[in-house]
Protein backbone atom coordinates (compact mmCIF):
# COMPACT_ATOMS: atom_id res chain seq x y z
CA UNK A 1 0.00 0.00 0.00
CA UNK A 2 2.70 2.42 0.96
CA UNK A 3 4.41 2.11 -2.41
CA UNK A 4 1.25 3.27 -4.16
CA UNK A 5 1.05 6.25 -1.89
CA UNK A 6 4.71 6.74 -2.66
CA UNK A 7 4.13 7.29 -6.36
CA UNK A 8 1.28 9.65 -5.73
CA UNK A 9 3.20 11.51 -3.09
CA UNK A 10 6.22 12.07 -5.25
CA UNK A 11 4.20 13.16 -8.28
CA UNK A 12 2.05 15.72 -6.54
CA UNK A 13 4.62 18.30 -5.48
CA UNK A 14 6.83 17.82 -8.55
CA UNK A 15 5.96 21.29 -9.80
CA UNK A 16 7.80 22.85 -6.87
CA UNK A 17 11.07 20.98 -6.61
CA UNK A 18 12.76 22.98 -3.89
CA UNK A 19 10.09 22.82 -1.12
CA UNK A 20 9.43 19.18 -1.90
CA UNK A 21 12.98 18.36 -1.01
CA UNK A 22 12.60 20.08 2.30
CA UNK A 23 9.25 18.56 3.14
CA UNK A 24 10.60 15.12 4.12
CA UNK A 25 13.06 16.78 6.48
CA UNK A 26 10.40 18.91 8.08
CA UNK A 27 8.17 15.87 8.36
CA UNK A 28 10.94 13.86 9.96
CA UNK A 29 11.74 16.69 12.35
CA UNK A 30 8.10 17.03 13.33
CA UNK A 31 7.65 13.31 13.82
CA UNK A 32 10.85 12.81 15.78
CA UNK A 33 10.92 16.00 17.85
CA UNK A 34 8.58 15.06 20.68
CA UNK A 35 9.55 11.39 21.01
CA UNK A 36 13.24 12.28 21.09
CA UNK A 37 12.94 15.29 23.39
CA UNK A 38 10.44 13.87 25.87
CA UNK A 39 11.16 10.15 25.75
CA UNK A 40 14.62 9.40 24.49
CA UNK A 41 16.39 12.35 26.10
CA UNK A 42 14.91 11.73 29.58
CA UNK A 43 15.69 8.02 29.34
CA UNK A 44 19.26 8.72 28.24
CA UNK A 45 19.70 11.27 31.00
CA UNK A 46 18.29 8.74 33.43
CA UNK A 47 20.86 6.18 32.36
CA UNK A 48 23.54 8.85 32.76
CA UNK A 49 22.35 9.72 36.26
CA UNK A 50 22.86 6.15 37.38
CA UNK A 51 26.60 6.74 37.06
CA UNK A 52 26.61 9.86 39.22
CA UNK A 53 26.66 10.13 42.99
CA UNK A 54 25.32 12.23 45.82
CA UNK A 55 27.27 14.25 48.32
CA UNK A 56 25.45 16.10 51.12
CA UNK A 57 22.25 16.44 49.12
CA UNK A 58 24.02 17.61 45.96
CA UNK A 59 24.48 15.51 42.88
CA UNK A 60 28.09 14.97 41.87
CA UNK A 61 28.48 14.69 38.11
CA UNK A 62 31.58 12.53 38.09
CA UNK A 63 31.09 9.14 36.44
CA UNK A 64 31.28 6.23 38.83
CA UNK A 65 29.96 2.71 39.01
CA UNK A 66 29.61 2.97 42.79
CA UNK A 67 25.80 2.77 42.62
CA UNK A 68 25.93 -0.57 40.85
CA UNK A 69 28.64 -1.86 43.13
CA UNK A 70 26.50 -0.87 46.10
CA UNK A 71 23.51 -2.75 44.72
CA UNK A 72 25.45 -5.96 44.19
CA UNK A 73 27.41 -5.87 47.44
CA UNK A 74 25.01 -4.36 49.99
CA UNK A 75 23.27 -7.09 52.01
CA UNK A 76 19.92 -5.27 51.84
CA UNK A 77 19.15 -4.70 48.19
CA UNK A 78 19.96 -7.96 46.45
CA UNK A 79 17.72 -10.13 48.70
CA UNK A 80 14.80 -7.71 48.23
CA UNK A 81 15.45 -7.73 44.51
CA UNK A 82 15.30 -11.53 44.30
CA UNK A 83 12.30 -11.67 46.60
CA UNK A 84 10.48 -9.18 44.38
CA UNK A 85 11.33 -11.14 41.25
CA UNK A 86 10.06 -14.30 42.90
CA UNK A 87 6.92 -12.55 44.09
CA UNK A 88 6.17 -11.23 40.61
CA UNK A 89 6.85 -14.64 39.10
CA UNK A 90 4.35 -16.11 41.55
CA UNK A 91 1.83 -13.43 40.58
CA UNK A 92 2.40 -14.28 36.92
CA UNK A 93 1.86 -17.98 37.53
CA UNK A 94 -1.28 -17.38 39.60
CA UNK A 95 -2.70 -15.01 37.01
CA UNK A 96 -2.16 -17.55 34.27
CA UNK A 97 -3.76 -20.30 36.36
CA UNK A 98 -6.86 -18.15 36.77
CA UNK A 99 -6.85 -16.66 33.30
CA UNK A 100 -6.37 -19.86 31.31
CA UNK A 101 -9.72 -21.49 32.19
CA UNK A 102 -11.48 -18.19 31.60
CA UNK A 103 -9.82 -17.70 28.23
CA UNK A 104 -10.62 -21.29 27.31
CA UNK A 105 -14.22 -20.82 28.35
CA UNK A 106 -14.38 -17.72 26.15
CA UNK A 107 -13.33 -19.71 23.10
CA UNK A 108 -16.17 -22.16 23.68
CA UNK A 109 -18.68 -19.31 23.38
CA UNK A 110 -19.83 -18.02 20.05
CA UNK A 111 -20.40 -14.69 18.35
CA UNK A 112 -21.64 -11.81 20.40
CA UNK A 113 -21.67 -13.55 23.76
CA UNK A 114 -17.97 -14.21 23.50
CA UNK A 115 -17.14 -10.56 22.91
CA UNK A 116 -19.49 -9.25 25.54
CA UNK A 117 -17.81 -11.49 28.08
CA UNK A 118 -14.37 -10.51 26.82
CA UNK A 119 -15.22 -6.82 27.16
CA UNK A 120 -16.54 -7.44 30.67
CA UNK A 121 -13.21 -9.04 31.51
CA UNK A 122 -11.30 -6.11 30.07
CA UNK A 123 -13.37 -3.29 31.56
CA UNK A 124 -11.60 -3.60 34.96
CA UNK A 125 -8.35 -2.79 33.12
CA UNK A 126 -9.44 0.77 32.59
CA UNK A 127 -10.83 1.18 36.06
CA UNK A 128 -8.80 3.24 38.43
CA UNK A 129 -5.79 1.26 39.61
CA UNK A 130 -5.66 3.03 42.95
CA UNK A 131 -9.32 2.29 43.54
CA UNK A 132 -8.85 -1.38 42.79
CA UNK A 133 -6.00 -1.59 45.28
CA UNK A 134 -8.16 0.17 47.85
CA UNK A 135 -11.07 -2.16 47.16
CA UNK A 136 -8.96 -5.27 47.53
CA UNK A 137 -7.40 -3.92 50.68
CA UNK A 138 -10.82 -3.46 52.22
CA UNK A 139 -11.35 -7.17 51.71
CA UNK A 140 -7.96 -8.35 52.92
CA UNK A 141 -7.69 -6.33 56.12
CA UNK A 142 -7.65 -7.84 59.60
CA UNK A 143 -11.28 -6.83 59.94
CA UNK A 144 -11.95 -7.28 56.19
CA UNK A 145 -14.48 -9.35 54.32
CA UNK A 146 -12.18 -12.31 53.79
CA UNK A 147 -11.41 -12.64 57.47
CA UNK A 148 -15.03 -12.20 58.44
CA UNK A 149 -16.12 -14.76 55.87
CA UNK A 150 -13.55 -17.23 57.14
CA UNK A 151 -14.66 -16.61 60.73
CA UNK A 152 -18.30 -17.01 59.79
CA UNK A 153 -17.68 -20.36 58.12
CA UNK A 154 -15.77 -21.51 61.18
CA UNK A 155 -12.62 -22.28 59.20
CA UNK A 156 -10.65 -20.09 61.59
CA UNK A 157 -11.53 -18.95 65.08
CA UNK A 158 -9.65 -15.65 65.17
CA UNK A 159 -8.79 -13.21 62.36
CA UNK A 160 -5.91 -14.55 60.28
CA UNK A 161 -2.93 -12.25 59.88
CA UNK A 162 -1.53 -14.28 56.98
CA UNK A 163 -2.66 -11.75 54.40
CA UNK A 164 -2.73 -8.49 56.35
CA UNK A 165 -0.11 -5.89 55.41
CA UNK A 166 2.58 -8.26 54.23
CA UNK A 167 3.94 -9.81 51.06
CA UNK A 168 1.06 -12.29 50.85
CA UNK A 169 -1.33 -9.37 50.68
CA UNK A 170 0.77 -7.88 47.90
CA UNK A 171 0.71 -11.21 46.08
CA UNK A 172 -3.06 -11.58 46.33
CA UNK A 173 -3.78 -7.97 45.43
CA UNK A 174 -1.50 -7.97 42.40
CA UNK A 175 -3.02 -11.23 41.21
CA UNK A 176 -6.54 -9.86 41.38
CA UNK A 177 -5.48 -6.65 39.66
CA UNK A 178 -3.55 -8.28 36.83
CA UNK A 179 -5.71 -11.29 35.85
CA UNK A 180 -7.36 -9.38 32.97
CA UNK A 181 -3.94 -8.71 31.45
CA UNK A 182 -3.34 -12.45 31.34
CA UNK A 183 -6.71 -13.32 29.84
CA UNK A 184 -6.25 -11.40 26.62
CA UNK A 185 -3.01 -12.92 25.25
CA UNK A 186 -4.10 -16.43 26.23
CA UNK A 187 -7.49 -15.94 24.63
CA UNK A 188 -5.89 -14.64 21.42
CA UNK A 189 -3.54 -17.60 21.17
CA UNK A 190 -6.33 -20.09 21.91
CA UNK A 191 -8.52 -18.45 19.30
CA UNK A 192 -5.80 -18.76 16.71
CA UNK A 193 -5.57 -22.56 17.01
CA UNK A 194 -7.25 -23.97 13.90
CA UNK A 195 -10.29 -26.05 14.77
CA UNK A 196 -9.15 -28.64 12.25
CA UNK A 197 -6.25 -29.56 14.52
CA UNK A 198 -8.56 -30.45 17.37
CA UNK A 199 -10.89 -32.32 15.04
CA UNK A 200 -7.95 -34.24 13.62
CA UNK A 201 -6.86 -35.15 17.11
CA UNK A 202 -10.34 -36.44 17.93
CA UNK A 203 -10.52 -38.33 14.64
CA UNK A 204 -7.28 -40.04 15.50
CA UNK A 205 -8.91 -41.35 18.65
CA UNK A 206 -7.70 -38.90 21.28
CA UNK A 207 -10.03 -38.19 24.15
CA UNK A 208 -10.99 -34.61 24.91
CA UNK A 209 -8.49 -34.54 27.73
CA UNK A 210 -5.72 -35.86 25.50
CA UNK A 211 -6.56 -33.31 22.83
CA UNK A 212 -6.51 -30.57 25.42
CA UNK A 213 -3.16 -31.53 26.95
CA UNK A 214 -1.35 -32.55 23.78
CA UNK A 215 -2.78 -30.14 21.20
CA UNK A 216 -4.40 -27.13 22.78
CA UNK A 217 -2.02 -26.47 25.65
CA UNK A 218 1.22 -26.72 23.64
CA UNK A 219 -0.21 -24.51 20.90
CA UNK A 220 -1.35 -21.91 23.40
CA UNK A 221 2.07 -21.80 25.03
CA UNK A 222 3.22 -18.63 23.23
CA UNK A 223 0.16 -16.75 24.46
CA UNK A 224 0.55 -18.14 27.94
CA UNK A 225 4.20 -17.12 28.10
CA UNK A 226 3.53 -13.64 26.81
CA UNK A 227 0.72 -13.35 29.36
CA UNK A 228 3.21 -14.31 32.05
CA UNK A 229 5.80 -11.80 30.93
CA UNK A 230 3.10 -9.15 30.65
CA UNK A 231 1.92 -9.72 34.20
CA UNK A 232 5.46 -10.00 35.51
CA UNK A 233 6.47 -6.66 33.98
CA UNK A 234 3.40 -4.89 35.33
CA UNK A 235 3.85 -6.40 38.77
CA UNK A 236 7.53 -5.64 39.14
CA UNK A 237 7.14 -2.00 38.19
CA UNK A 238 4.33 -1.39 40.65
CA UNK A 239 5.14 0.53 43.79
CA UNK A 240 1.62 1.56 44.75
CA UNK A 241 0.27 -1.88 45.67
CA UNK A 242 3.17 -2.82 47.98
CA UNK A 243 2.93 0.57 49.61
CA UNK A 244 -0.81 0.27 50.16
CA UNK A 245 -1.12 -3.36 51.29
CA UNK A 246 2.46 -4.39 51.99
CA UNK A 247 2.87 -2.71 55.36
CA UNK A 248 6.30 -2.77 57.01
CA UNK A 249 7.37 -6.22 55.86
CA UNK A 250 6.14 -5.97 52.30
CA UNK A 251 9.12 -4.12 50.95
CA UNK A 252 9.63 -4.59 47.24
CA UNK A 253 12.12 -3.37 44.69
CA UNK A 254 9.71 -0.77 43.28
CA UNK A 255 9.17 0.68 46.71
CA UNK A 256 12.90 0.97 47.30
CA UNK A 257 13.36 2.80 44.02
CA UNK A 258 10.54 5.17 44.90
CA UNK A 259 11.99 5.84 48.33
CA UNK A 260 15.32 6.88 46.76
CA UNK A 261 13.47 9.79 45.22
CA UNK A 262 11.57 10.60 48.38
CA UNK A 263 12.82 9.96 51.88
CA UNK A 264 16.24 8.55 51.03
CA UNK A 265 16.89 11.28 48.44
CA UNK A 266 19.54 9.54 46.42
CA UNK A 267 18.52 10.06 42.82
CA UNK A 268 21.60 8.53 41.20
CA UNK A 269 21.26 5.36 43.25
CA UNK A 270 17.53 5.28 42.46
CA UNK A 271 18.38 5.70 38.79
CA UNK A 272 20.82 2.80 38.98
CA UNK A 273 18.19 0.60 40.63
CA UNK A 274 15.75 1.62 37.89
CA UNK A 275 18.24 0.68 35.21
CA UNK A 276 18.45 -2.76 36.79
CA UNK A 277 14.65 -2.89 36.85
CA UNK A 278 14.59 -1.90 33.17
CA UNK A 279 17.06 -4.68 32.38
CA UNK A 280 14.85 -7.24 34.12
CA UNK A 281 11.82 -5.92 32.27
CA UNK A 282 13.59 -6.14 28.92
CA UNK A 283 14.64 -9.72 29.65
CA UNK A 284 11.07 -10.61 30.65
CA UNK A 285 9.62 -9.05 27.51
CA UNK A 286 12.23 -10.84 25.41
CA UNK A 287 11.42 -14.19 27.03
CA UNK A 288 7.72 -13.62 26.57
CA UNK A 289 8.06 -12.55 22.96
CA UNK A 290 10.66 -15.04 21.87
CA UNK A 291 8.37 -18.03 21.72
CA UNK A 292 5.84 -15.97 19.82
CA UNK A 293 8.31 -14.99 17.13
CA UNK A 294 9.89 -18.43 16.81
CA UNK A 295 6.43 -19.89 16.36
CA UNK A 296 5.75 -17.23 13.77
CA UNK A 297 8.76 -18.42 11.80
CA UNK A 298 7.59 -22.02 11.79
CA UNK A 299 4.17 -21.17 10.42
Amino acid sequence: MSSRVADAGVEAPAAHPSPSRLVPWFAALAAYAVPIWFVLAPMALFLGYSFFSVDKGNIVFTPTVANYVRFFTDPVFLPIFWRTCLLCLAVAVLCVLFAFPVAYFLTTLRGRRRYVLLVLLLVPLLMSYVIKIYAVRSILGGNGMLNRALLATGLIDKPSMLFVFNLNAVLLTLTVLLIPFAVLPIFLSLERIPKALRHASADLGASNAQTFWRVTVPLSLPGTLSAMSFVFVLAIGDFLTPQMVGGQSGFTFGRIIYSQFGTAFNWPFGAALSVILAAVVIIAIRLGGRVESSRGRIQ
Binding site: P35, L40, F46, L234, G237
Partner: peptide, 19 residues
Protein backbone atom coordinates in the same frame (compact mmCIF):
# COMPACT_ATOMS: atom_id res chain seq x y z
CA UNK B 1 7.20 5.80 21.15
CA UNK B 2 6.67 2.39 22.69
CA UNK B 3 9.32 2.81 25.40
CA UNK B 4 7.09 4.56 27.96
CA UNK B 5 4.40 2.00 27.36
CA UNK B 6 6.67 -1.03 27.71
CA UNK B 7 8.76 0.22 30.58
CA UNK B 8 7.20 0.34 34.04
CA UNK B 9 5.60 3.75 34.68
CA UNK B 10 8.01 4.33 37.53
CA UNK B 11 10.87 4.44 35.04
CA UNK B 12 9.08 6.83 32.68
CA UNK B 13 8.09 8.99 35.62
CA UNK B 14 11.56 9.10 37.15
CA UNK B 15 13.22 9.75 33.80
CA UNK B 16 10.91 12.72 33.23
CA UNK B 17 11.42 13.91 36.80
CA UNK B 18 15.19 14.00 36.36
CA UNK B 19 14.85 15.50 32.91
Amino acid sequence: IFLPFLMPPIITGLALLIF
